[in-house]
């Protein structure tokens, strides 16, 4: 009995030694990145960054919102050097708490100002477009506006994801362009008409399976699914609303620096280099944001998307958006 116990204790100690490695010291040659984007997607790019520069990158993967909450709790003592987020909202929240460093102009000027923070605290890395995902057998004529989805004919046919960050950013844009009253009216109609989902991917799945006729998602979900199963095997299509409609909003995933260092800047520059931008265009069918790198051939060029005229910086009033979504009873 005693012998078994001592083996157990020794085993436990041995295990604990392997499980408890301290994070590396923050010298100039290693950085910690909090990444809200998926590992399978960005790790290959980070690997090639490490090879090219010799800078060690420790990456912490989790959801963008959870990482933002984590950064807010860590405050000034965060081990993170860089925050690479899925959406502008998460970056905005961290920026508002004063936890992001002002980026140098040499970085900021790479990307059109409308895809970065007004105060220069974060910068867009790749663009995505809101689209209508629809089943062509059930939807013969595309609605002209996202507001058409409020009509009774759409009852039970349209899917939305009210807790999803991209959907909320889109509602914020609607408030900015169309005003609170009209937005609330639309949301209330959605409470009547829409089937609610947790994520974009679940909407796509429901449109594919025929459970609903159409849904509001980001464009790259459809491309990712097409690449997984073959575009010829997709039942659904994606389409845009009429020119200038808020349903065509262009948004961006972005990056901010938490603790300034040469290595951290090099990392951000790498994401915005031709290699980095080409990588996002090819791997995720997202839009490159720097000049000189073109979008994948099967994607409508960003300049030709009939997007509403809006500055991404105006999308930081999430509190008011949530109030409206709550008032409509969607969350």
């Amino acid at each position: 009995m005693k012998k078994t116990l001592s083996y157990l204790v020794a085993g436990a100690l041995a295990l604990s030694l392997t499980a408890c490695s301290n994070p590396p010291a923050d010298d100039k040659n290693s950085i910690t990145v909090y990444a809200g984007r998926s590992e399978s997607l960005v790790q290959p790019l980070i690997d090639s960054f490490q090879e090219e520069t010799g800078i060690q990158v420790e990456v912490r993967y989790a959801g963008s919102a959870e990482l933002a909450a984590q950064l807010l709790e860590e405050g000034q003592n965060s081990p993170a050097d860089v925050f690479f987020a899925q959406d502008a909202g998460a970056l905005g929240a961290v920026s508002k708490a004063g936890l992001l460093v002002q980026l140098p102009d040499s970085i900021l000027e790479k990307v059109p100002a409308s895809y970065s923070a007004a105060d220069g605290s974060w910068i867009g890395v790749s663009g995505r477009v809101r689209v209508l995902n629809y089943n062509p057998q059930k939807v013969s004529q595309l609605p002209q506006s996202v507001f058409d989805l409020a009509e009774p004919e759409w009852k039970g046919r349209i899917g939305i994801a009210p807790t999803n960050a991209s959907f909320q950013a889109f509602v914020t844009a609607m408030q900015v362009i169309e005003g609170d009253a009209k937005t609330l009216q639309w949301l209330e109609a959605m409470k009547e008409n829409a089937v609610l989902y947790e994520k974009n991917s679940a909407i796509l799945e429901a449109v594919e399976s025929g459970a609903i006729d159409a849904g509001l998602i980001n464009h790259y979900y459809w491309f990712a699914r097409g690449q997984e199963v073959g575009f010829e095997n997709l039942t659904s299509k994606i389409g845009q609303f009429a020119s200038g409609d808020v349903g065509n909003l262009i948004n961006a995933a972005g990056v901010g620096i938490v603790a300034d260092s040469k290595a951290a800047r090099q990392f951000v520059e790498y994401l915005l280099s031709e290699t980095g931008q080409r990588y996002f265009a090819d791997q995720t069918s997202e839009y490159p944001l720097i000049d000189g790198v073109s979008a994948p051939v099967d994607l409508t060029p960003l300049a030709e998307i009939p997007a509403p005229a809006i500055d991404l910086n105006d999308l930081d009033r999430l509190d008011q958006t949530l109030d409206l979504i709550r008032a409509a009873g969607l969350i």
Binding site: G63, A65, E66, A68, A69, L72, E73, A90, A93, T163, A165, Q168, L196, Y197, E198, L318, D319, L322, I331
Partner: peptide, 23 residues
């Protein structure tokens, strides 16, 4: 509960963090 879309306190707590970073 989130996957099955039923609203409870815990889901509201998660949404407060994830939707609005409202600690």
């Amino acid at each position: 509960i989130a996957l099955l879309r039923y609203d409870t306190f815990t889901r509201a707590i998660y949404n407060a963090y994830r939707g609005s970073f409202d600690r």
